[in-house]
């Protein structure tokens, strides 16, 4: 992370070069290797999401969900304007920011965490841009983070970031939505590393009592165009829904359902219990 004007390339305000091609020469990193190995061994993938700084003991929560059966943990770096998030993760982000959480401090905490499964950072592009893409990628790598999800950085805007991330050994997970045409989904998958994130529904993150019909559809469509591990997230609320999605997907991402438990005061144990429930449902 860099102070303003410290000379990181994009802090100077020059957005990355055009192009949608795959990051030059960057093959799969440790995230993709780990997830492919598990998937190929017949295991369904479970990726819980935790907002950094939402609760005091968030790092323990990360460890606890890893121990309870996660295959990777997604850590959200809070942003002031989380436009693709619903009320629960908005609340978690706001709480984390009020508690003074910065990307730098959160990553420093993660660096010493020894979680045992790959970590994937999710954040909005302005935090990456402000730090400078190269510097941000290196900070992730130095903190032991294996992947990054930047949901407001679509394929066309992502070439520069993917190149820097790839060079630092960080896999860039891209998203495919129910509205994405197949041909575009194919191009996204070519540029994507780690796993491909199938957006389960048209909408923001948050709990839903019913599983959207689009969740399994998007998984099937992705299966048809890529060999990457396919994980579906957004709206995955219950273990039962997760099991249903896993009929078609390689795994699921569980965000708001877990974060709500944290905001309600459930600590690492409650988080671990939830994840264990999902684990046994998809196994």
């Amino acid at each position: 992370m860099t102070p303003p004007g410290a000379g990181a390339p994009s802090a100077a305000g020059v957005p990355p070069a055009a192009g949608t091609g795959a990051a030059a020469g960057a093959g799969p990193g440790p995230l993709e290797r780990a997830l492919r190995a598990r998937r190929d061994a017949g295991r369904k993938l479970l990726v819980p999401y935790v907002t950094a700084g939402a609760v005091d003991d968030w790092v323990q929560v990360v460890r606890a969900v890893a121990a309870a059966g996660a295959d990777a943990v997604e850590v959200g770096l809070p942003f002031s304007d989380p436009m693709i998030d619903g009320p629960t993760i908005q609340q978690a982000s706001l709480t984390a920011l009020r508690r003074g959480t910065t990307p730098q401090a959160a990553l420093a905490e993660l660096a010493g965490a020894d979680v045992g499964v790959p970590l994937v950072v999710m954040t909005y592009y302005n935090l990456v841009f402000r730090a400078g893409e190269r510097r941000f990628a290196r900070t992730l790598a130095d903190s032991g983070v294996a992947g990054a999800i930047v949901p407001d950085l679509p394929l066309e805007e992502s070439a520069g970031w993917r190149e820097e991330a790839g060079a630092a050994g960080v896999d860039t997970v891209l998203l495919v939505a129910p509205s994405t045409p197949d041909e575009r989904a194919r191009r996204i998958c070519e540029a994507c590393r780690g796993f491909v994130y199938g957006v389960g529904l048209m909408g923001v993150t948050g709990e839903r009592s019913e599983l959207a019909g689009t969740a399994r559809q998007v998984a099937r469509r992705l299966r048809a165009v890529t060999d990457l591990p396919v994980c579906v997230g957004v709206g995955v609320t219950t273990a039962r829904q997760a099991a249903e999605i896993c009929e078609d997907a390689d795994g699921v991402v569980v965000g708001s359902a877990l974060v709500r438990r944290l905001l309600d005061g459930g600590g690492p144990d409650a988080a671990a219990a939830l994840v264990a429930g999902f684990r046994s449902a998809i196994d």
């Binding site: 436009m83 407001d152 394929l155 066309e156 509205s179 957006v199």
Partner: peptide, 21 residues
């Protein structure tokens, strides 16, 4: 330009769900 840029500004930084729209 083709990516919606005025010099170094502009672009289309939206979630994938909105790119087709």
């Amino acid at each position: 330009d083709a990516r919606g840029r005025f010099g170094r500004f502009g672009g289309r930084y939206v979630p994938e769900s909105l790119v087709p729209a």
